[in-house]
Design a protein around this nucleic acid. Sequence first.
DNA 1: TCGCTTCCGTGCGTTAGCGTACATGGCATG
DNA 2: CATGCCATGTACGCTAACGCACGGAAGCGA
Lengths: 239, 239
Amino acid sequence: MASQHDPRQNHLLAALPRDEYQRLAPHLERVELTLGESLVESGKVMRHVYFPTDSIVSLLCVMEDGDSTEIAVVGAEGIVGISLFMGGETTPGRAVVQSAGGAYRLKGQLLKDEFDRASTLQYLLLRYTQALITQMAQTAVCNRHHSLDQQLCRWLLLSLDRLPSHELVMTQELIANMLGVRREGVTESAGKLQKAGLIAYHRGRISILDRPGLEARVCECYAVVKKEYDRLLSYQRPG
Amino acid sequence: MASQHDPRQNHLLAALPRDEYQRLAPHLERVELTLGESLVESGKVMRHVYFPTDSIVSLLCVMEDGDSTEIAVVGAEGIVGISLFMGGETTPGRAVVQSAGGAYRLKGQLLKDEFDRASTLQYLLLRYTQALITQMAQTAVCNRHHSLDQQLCRWLLLSLDRLPSHELVMTQELIANMLGVRREGVTESAGKLQKAGLIAYHRGRISILDRPGLEARVCECYAVVKKEYDRLLSYQRPG
DNA sequence: TCGCTTCCGTGCGTTAGCGTACATGGCATG
DNA sequence: CATGCCATGTACGCTAACGCACGGAAGCGA
């Protein structure tokens, strides 16, 4: 069983066979991520990858004028810094802590070394990356075709899936940055959900009161992403 | 030099060292892709990957109601079917031929075998996948924040970069499907470009008359993607 | 040559989301 | 308790894109 602070609260680390995990474990360094902290800056070379345990990290694409959009969200099921093993070293995007909490970090070179052994880690990371790609694609199509109301539901559910509690610490201003819309738009959509009794909002804290209600309002995008994550990250190795 | 039909017109295949290429070459099968042909269907297991030479393939995300959006575009610089080596076997998206032309296909298992040798091919494919991810992310943010006019310019330039000629065979209806907008919207935006003398449109054929003019109108997204492709696919191996 | 289909242009009214401005009420800080 | 900032609510005009409907023209096949 996992102690209170155990790297294996991260699903990728938990899925490693004993010997691979033992090689990495001494180098895993626990860090506390604070809300708004930036783990990856556009174009900067990363020194570490991060395995969240009970934190959430948003992958953002920021443009010259400051407008931004969330591309994908990473929790305990994933890793931040895929470009380190994909080979690019850097990304044009940013990674920002969306929900404070713990994570374990690992020096990029150590991850790369283990990855290059054609290890289980490689298998896991590639499958995870494909799940991430699906999330990005579905986010793109959702941005195009669905209403802000639906997108907000999707965003809340994706966050909720990565949190232990039913409460998230997040101002409407920040949600607006994630979704790439106006703050006032979020106020309006969130107001609808609140009137419908699905959530309660109070100064940067959102309590989810009726999760099935959210699921009833969300667009198909949420289910598509969730299904693909379940499929790809169930970790039944072929051999 | 490449003969008229040479697998090495595809940049990934061209970048392989001799021995790796020799292993794959006997299994590369030339195919002619026709406009609108579907190479990958949502959820279906793929049997082959495709290396385009002078064709263009669009990666689409299609929703239940039929609305779709292009997530990324693949030409001679890339490969169609990344989920075969990423490990997922399938994707929720589709891959549709956007511009007819040649490609070489390879049985999925053969590609996987070579990939798992920790070969140069693996190095190339992973870097390519990262470039693809960048394109997807930028597409998402462009969908959100930029006008249809700008997106059309981006789409034309991305297509143009993957074509030998200055003419593309593509109805406004199809472009609308790619961009996830109405056909009438494309008519209007294309009309502006035509009035400005940048393109000429005639029954499913677009001639680009003034490429610098398009580049002057396009949003930053085009340059971000192009720069990242150039950076990641220049193929200077570290060792 | 006729007729049909495909492709493009245009003109509505409608709407979601934008930009802006401003009001209110918590909460912290002194 | 006074001050001030921050998070949220609200209002209003504006615009890009939507849905729908129609018209015309180019090409193709009989």
